[in-house]
């Protein structure tokens, strides 16, 4: 774990509930925060970086409170959602200025700055004013400043917002490299669910200030056992296959001559049954995939539920 834990945390903005009695721990790796506008993603991130204090409950790191913990703050990086920065500064000046707050030696800061410009693919643009940067470049310089102190944990709010495909690729690759090669933990919030799905090893799904699901994407979908999962199966022996599985599925429809779509509640049992059929009855299966197992579909399923009455942990 990253050591960051939320214990029965609530946050109120007047009469509006920002977070409602949430409890979770953030694991190491890349964690995605998923939720619609006002779900509590930014509130969660702000609490993680000690910008907000919970009204109820505690946010701790290794059992120490985060609030006012300068030791902790010196080892995290944070990139805000908004990308308007000091436009009159050049990219290099912006990094230089932010680096001054970490009590780094000038030589160390210089080296680190160049590493980050290289990492964020901004070396060529380092002497240009931020005002002249594209949206993607602004995102990258903003993320770059969050890496100056070589943090152990990096919090990034909407990193893909407004970026072009190349910018998204650069940012996604940077996060992957930081996690794989340097063992950093990264906590991202994003509306771009397919990017988040590709990056995150763990997701926290928030809705109306409540944590409605946490786990791996596959795990959350499996935990949604009361909602049938839609699976597509292709087989040259499709009629034979249907005769075996028809009693085990909630729905079955033929997609084409050799392909069917089924709805099942207990996917693990169903997968085991298919495996048995392959081995014992020699039924060949050429294609097998879930049509609603991606993060976007899961999120849509979760949104339809009454978030007050359930929570999925997988």
């Amino acid at each position: 774990m990253t050591g960051i834990s939320f214990d029965s945390v609530s946050k109120f903005y007047g009469e509006v509930v920002g977070l409602n009695d949430v409890t979770f721990s953030i694991p190491k790796g890349i964690t995605g925060l998923v939720g619609s506008n006002g779900a509590g993603k930014t509130t969660t991130l702000k609490m993680c970086v000690a910008l907000l204090k919970p009204d109820l409950g505690t946010v701790t790191v290794n059992d120490e409170p985060i609030w006012g913990n300068l030791g902790y703050l010196s080892r995290i990086g944070y990139a805000t959602e908004k990308d308007k920065l000091y436009n009159w500064m050049t990219g290099e000046e912006f990094l230089d200025w932010n680096g001054k707050f970490y009590q780094m030696e000038p030589k160390e800061l210089e080296t680190r700055k160049m590493e980050i410009l290289e990492l964020m693919n901004l070396r060529e643009a380092k002497d240009r004013r931020i005002a002249g940067y594209s949206r993607g470049m602004r995102q990258r310089i903003k993320i770059g400043q969050a890496l100056l102190n070589n943090p152990d944990i990096i919090f990034v709010d909407e990193p893909m917002s407004g970026t072009d495909p190349l910018g998204r690729y650069t940012i996604a690759e940077t996060f992957r490299r930081l996690q794989k090669e340097e063992g950093k933990s990264i906590i991202l919030s994003s509306h771009v669910l397919h990017e988040l799905e590709r990056l995150s090893s763990w997701v926290l799904v928030l809705e109306n200030g409540k944590l409605v699901a946490e786990g791996t994407i596959h795990g959350i979908r499996l935990a949604l056992s009361d909602i049938p999962q839609h699976l597509v199966i292709s087989s040259p022996n499709i009629s034979q296959l249907v005769s075996f599985i028809v009693s085990e599925v909630d729905e079955l429809k033929r997609v084409d001559e050799n392909k069917i779509e089924v709805a099942v509640r207990k996917r693990r049992n169903f997968e085991k049954m298919l495996l048995d059929l392959q081995q014992e009855k020699s039924i060949e299966i050429t294609e097998f995939y879930s049509v609603d197992g991606d993060l976007s579909s899961i999120y849509q399923l979760l949104k339809k539920r009454d978030s007050a009455s359930w929570r999925y942990i997988a």
Binding site: K46, V49, A50, L51, G68, L70, L73, I76, Y78, T80, K82, D83, K84, L85, Y86, N87, N98, F101, Y102, Q145
Partner: peptide, 13 residues
Amino acid sequence: GDNTFNLYLTKMK
């Protein structure tokens, strides 16, 4: 205006 207020507060009290 430049949204650097929150950025500073993650670096200092």
